[in-house]
Write a protein that binds this DNA or RNA. Structure first.
Lengths: 337, 337
DNA sequence: TTGTAGGCGTTATCAA
DNA sequence: TTGATAACGCCTACAA
């Protein structure tokens, strides 16, 4: 035992270490790991054995620097504790994992930075692609993104002129569909519990425009601060009912609807006879609620799955058949309205 | 206009480009950006101007490679769409953002990989720290982590022997506290709706052990498959009630409790007179529900915030006063039990 | 099928 | 306070 034996150097094994123990060049080891089909099977075996022996873990920083591909996808969402985006995020993560990509998740909600600064910081990681929530971005952000020439998917909204790719649905049309349902069912005195949120605002526009065209102008709206919770629904309904009489309450989310329903029930109102309630999102409790909640269903997972897939295909040089995907929505009539 | 002007090279501006336009060395530019206090103010100004002029965005891959610090924290959770972890994740993300770190989020739930493979893949990104959910890990995983000598925080559980650092609470004790409450209130025929989940199982152990010691052995348990949803709560109660008579239903989460309550109400049972219900988590609807849900409150955000902070302090070489943080919990008595 | 040379963009280190 | 030089660990390009 040499007396000068230093404690293990904290340096992690490198490709060269593996190459040395395998009796090969580092380039061959790299190939065996990344493109095994270009390497003789026996050689690959040798390499794998050496990898196991050394405990080698590739350094993606070095790899990304050299190859100019990071296998990293940056995802920017306004919040994740609002029940809507979570499923999309999980779907993105799952889809990425299948192909060896990783997700850098950034919650824009409560930070002071502007979205542009936030994305700039993310770009320093050299992601191969970016997922942005929504379609309303500052000029700064657009400049930064175009400059970086990185593939981008905008999600959860629709526009004929996305930055690059897009997966979403029309919030305006959701609003219209909701209005049409109200009219068809004969509701004439709607009240709104509405979260202060861009996409929700678009749904409100679609709703109110259609109502106005049919003689129902300026329905009463209770603004709900984000995050819109169950409790906000109860409180919101309380405020709404203090303002007058309504035959239906339209809510910007099922969460609010559930709260509103409980408040109504606590007041002895029958739903939908005394007061109907409509939600949005078809969250997991909507169908099982008592009464079940009439709402709009959106496939939140598909948004994530398609966004991830489009991004990866683009990155890997495939031709995309569509760059704008409208996943649509379904109005679901249940007991509450 | 030179006729040979090529279209812009897709190459992003580098430190050298900035250095050239600023008339400085790249090393000085690097310093001006990372440790401005070591650079003459006027020089810093020049650098910032050149950065703006070139549209320079640092390359964190190169930086991380050279400095051996990635400013990346990897977070591994079993799922994110279960309402519990979301708040923790958001808190982690927020805390990291404040200090210039980014979060690599990995959902272990539905992938085929073992946790060890998953973490190995993450380690290739050379994160400066890792957050793991739970304390039960394979020997492989432990080996990989120790080998990598990367700071680790385990969260959402408690043990005297964490891998490294830990922020959580005792699920056993939550179970005990729940049992004691039942006994104190005089409930004698409990039934359980319980998600098939490691941490939930620990709470069940604490609950059942304490009950057994007080003469209530082997309560009826309905296993709930993950993810445990509102609907699972309704169905679970249906199954439970088919098995016999109960005076209280203990649920492994508020979500299940809410479902159980709705099912009970739909059957005309009064809560808590005919059937009491207890949940876990104090999710946002628990207090506002009708009836409000008796439950156990855990500060899910604090878990994330402390985990992130401990990790960053350790990374930045500070001495930690505690490496194991028990954030505790509160039993909250409300109307449902 | 394997190997050699050189560079990816940054920072550590030492010198000026 | 600033600069020159040499890594950091891997991959592209080309050669054998």
């Amino acid at each position: 035992m040499p007396k000068s034996a230093r404690p293990l150097p904290p340096r992690a094994p490198t490709l060269d270490d593996v190459a040395r123990t395998a009796g090969l060049s580092s380039m061959t080891v790299s190939r065996a790991l990344n493109t095994p089909q270009l390497v003789r099977p026996k050689t690959v075996e040798k390499v794998l054995a050496a990898v196991k022996a050394t405990g080698y873990i590739p350094n993606a920083l070095a790899g990304g620097l050299a190859s100019r591909r990071s296998k990293l996808i940056a995802v920017v969402v306004p919040q994740i504790n609002n029940n809507m985006f979570v499923d999309t995020i999980q779907a993105i993560s799952d889809a990425l994992a299948l192909r060896g990509y990783h997700m850098l998740l950034c919650v824009a909600g409560y930070t002071q930075q502007t979205e542009a600064e936030l994305v700039s910081a993310l770009l320093s990681r050299r992601p191969d692609g970016i997922v942005l929530t929504g379609i309303h971005h500052s000029a700064d952000l657009k400049k930064v993104l175009l400059n970086a020439s990185v593939p981008v998917v905008e999600v959860w909204d629709l526009t004929p002129t996305p930055l690059d790719m897009l997966v979403g649905f029309s919030h305006e049309k959701v609003g219209q569909a909701t209005a049409e349902y109200l009219l068809r069912k004969g509701y004439r005195r709607p009240g709104l519990l509405w979260a202060v949120d861009k996409r929700a605002a678009q749904r409100k526009n679609g709703l109110c425009d259609t109502l106005a065209r049919n003689g129902i102008a300026n329905p009463s709206v209770v603004d709900i601060a984000l995050p819109a919770r169950f409790t906000s629904g109860r409180e919101g309904l309380r405020e709404l009912l203090a303002r007058g009489e309504f035959d239906v309450v339209v809510c910007s989310s099922d969460t609010l609807a559930q709260g509103a329903i409980v408040e109504a029930q606590a007041r002895g109102l029958r739903i939908p006879q005394d007061l109907a309630v409509i939600g949005f999102g078809d969250l997991d409790f909507a169908a099982g609620n008592h009464p079940s909640i009439t709402t709009v269903s959106v496939d939140r997972q598909i948004i994530g799955q398609r966004a991830a897939t489009m991004l990866m295909e683009r990155i890997e040089g495939m031709e995309l058949t569509e760059e704008i995907v409208d996943i649509g929505f379904h109005f679901i009539e249940r007991e509450s309205a």
